[in-house]
Design a binder for these strands. Structure first.
Length: 506
RNA sequence: GGCCCGUUCGUCUAGGGGUUAGGACGCAAGAUUUUCAUUCUUGAAACACGAGUUCGAUUCUCGUACGGGCUACCA
């Protein structure tokens, strides 16, 4: 069947979108772009009890930060709206009723307590209770009650739900784009609730109705939905929509870096890496969660990292722009098995992107840190600093932290370095060094280096004997980039001041 | 427990009936360097197990183990 590719990302606004959710959105987006199709955003807020204020805004903002442009849906609009299921509420009941009429669904009047009791009873016998063909004949529903009884119950405003009438002992051979053939037997499935007592549809009903109405061509979602695939396919069949049923692709899950199970929001704060794209504060508990954005990740790096979690193009390339990903992405190269999340690799991706950034771009970001500290520094010099330090940084914050000595002279000198490099005769050498440097007119890295090297050669001493204490004087410790590059940025005056200072201090 | 899915270095993965099983992260060593890094080079490191099919299986089939998911009037 040849039809326009239309995919949707359909999160439920129950909290912040986490890594797995963003990746599902990403794969949907890439698939849409690869095929020149539409990428929709639908909000599945059918559970009023789990609604978290701000979650929807968070989702929209996250997609935006990631650069995943929504073509149609919440916040954008489109001809198949509304795209928030709560706003589509009046729509769903007729579909549930339609299913009752066609004999594919029925009213069920059992209370939650009664059902819980049943479950307990079964459990105590070592069995599992299932509301299906085997048990529904003994329960309170429109299949076992007379039409009059049902009507009077309905008229009296009694609580009811509408359940799907799962066929008995039918073998289903379903197709999944990623997994191939998947087999189910309907006798092992239960009569899922389609329509709740509160007048809202469940996920299953709303999802199928909306996907159909919105002409969705491919359903790309997490593997946790694979067990409901038979229900969903059966629903399409019951509605008579089989011809336009979307194809399904179930994505492997993202697992915890260590330990068992899928990645959860707890893992982030526990292990010191973000699981959310952006910072999130739980409005109920006030608990705060780190975000990739605030932790200094570039959205391109974040997306690149996610894309390679469960997918790869089959080449050895690892760095991809979003455009490249759109061109290369196909579902047949998505893995079947769950992927353990690796925070180290996430940092590495960010490093790769950091190095690619221009010095001026980085300087602008570095400057934001300095502004907070009340420091003003020449932008040209900040660019040079970024150029010098970016190779050894994962984040702009790393550059900020490791460039402190540019903004203020060392307050103390690293003990280990002093012990190792500040020997007898060192003060005299530093004194001489001052004279040498004073004589350098144009204080560039090349000029100072040439002057110092020439002097060291004529003195017949080891270069290290001079450079190590010199470094100590300038930055206070024994690390950092090429020293002559540093003092070029610092300038002659500051360099000499720092040399004088160390002579006074030690 | 039941149902469904999965299993290549520690991790992400490529590959696929006959390969020195490739890459990346991380780790280690060496070279370079005034230091610390970077960079470069090198190294350690994997086909879960058992049967079957086959001349040959890591690759195909089955079983086992292990891992994961689902099993709500949540999504």
């Amino acid at each position: 069947m040849d039809r326009k590719v239309r995919v949707r990302f359909a999160p439920s606004p129950t909290g912040a979108l986490h890594l797995g959710g963003v990746r599902t959105a990403l794969f949907n987006y890439l698939f849409a772009r690869h095929h020149g199709g539409d990428f929709l955003l639908r909000i599945e807020d059918t559970d009023q009890t789990r609604y978290v204020p701000g979650a929807e805004e968070y989702i929209i903002e996250s997609l935006k930060w990631c650069g995943l442009t929504v073509d149609e849906g919440v916040g954008v609009g489109g001809e198949y709206g509304p795209y928030r299921q709560s706003e589509r509420k009046p729509l769903y009941k007729q579909y549930a009723l339609q299913l009752i009429e066609s004999g594919n669904a029925y009213y069920s009047f059992d209370s939650a307590e009664e059902l819980n009791q049943q479950r307990k009873d079964y459990e105590s016998r070592g069995e599992t209770f299932m509301y299906n063909a085997a048990t529904r004949v003994n329960l309170k529903n429109s299949l076992t009650m007379s039409a009059e009884e049902v009507k009077s119950l309905l008229d009296s405003g009694a609580n009811y739900v509408i359940r799907f009438k799962m066929p008995e002992n039918e073998d289903l051979l379903l197709h999944d784009i990623i997994r191939g053939e998947v087999h189910f037997n309907t006798s092992l499935l239960d009569d899922k609730v389609l329509f709740k007592a509160d007048g809202m549809p469940t996920y299953h009903l709303a999802n199928i109705v909306d996907d159909h109405l919105m002409k969705i061509s491919h359903v790309i979602r997490g593997e946790e939905w694979l067990p409901s695939l038979p229900l969903h396919v059966l629903l399409y069949r019951a509605f008579g929509w089989e011809d336009s049923m979307p194809e399904f692709a179930h994505l492997p899950l993202i697992l915890k870096p260590v330990g068992n199970g899928k990645l959860s929001k707890r893992d982030g704060n526990k292990m010191g890496f973000p699981v959310f794209p952006m910072e999130f504060t739980d409005p109920e508990t006030g608990e705060k969660w780190h975000g990739y954005r605030e932790d200094g990740y570039f959205p391109e790096a974040f997306i690149n990292m996610l894309a390679l979690l469960g997918w790869n193009p089959g080449t050895e390339q690892e760095i991809f722009s979003l455009d490249e990903l759109c061109k290369l992405f196909t579902l047949d190269r998505v893995n079947k098995s769950g992927a353990r999340f690796n925070p180290d690799k996430a940092k590495w991706f960010n490093h790769k992107y950091l190095v690619q950034k221009t010095d001026s771009e980085l300087a602008t970001q570095l400057n934001e840190f300095l502004v907070k500290d009340g420091i003003t520094y020449d932008m040209r010099k900040l660019e040079k600093i970024c150029h010098l330090l970016k190779e050894r940084a994962n984040f702009v914050a790393d550059i900020y932290h490791s460039s402190q000595y540019f903004y203020k002279a060392p307050q103390s000198y690293e003990e280990k370095g002093v012990k190792k490099f500040w020997k007898e005769g060192t003060p005299e050498l530093m004194q001489e060094l001052i004279t040498i440097l004073e004589g350098v007119k144009d204080f560039t890295s090349a000029n100072t280096e040439e002057a110092v090297k020439g002097w060291v050669e004529t003195k017949q001493i080891g270069f290290g004997k001079v450079m190590s204490p010199f470094r100590l004087a300038i930055i206070g410790s024994a690390d950092g980039p090429h020293l002559f590059d540093i003092i070029e940025i610092l300038g002659k005056e500051e360099t000499l001041t720092r040399l004088h200072r160390i002579l006074e201090t030690l």
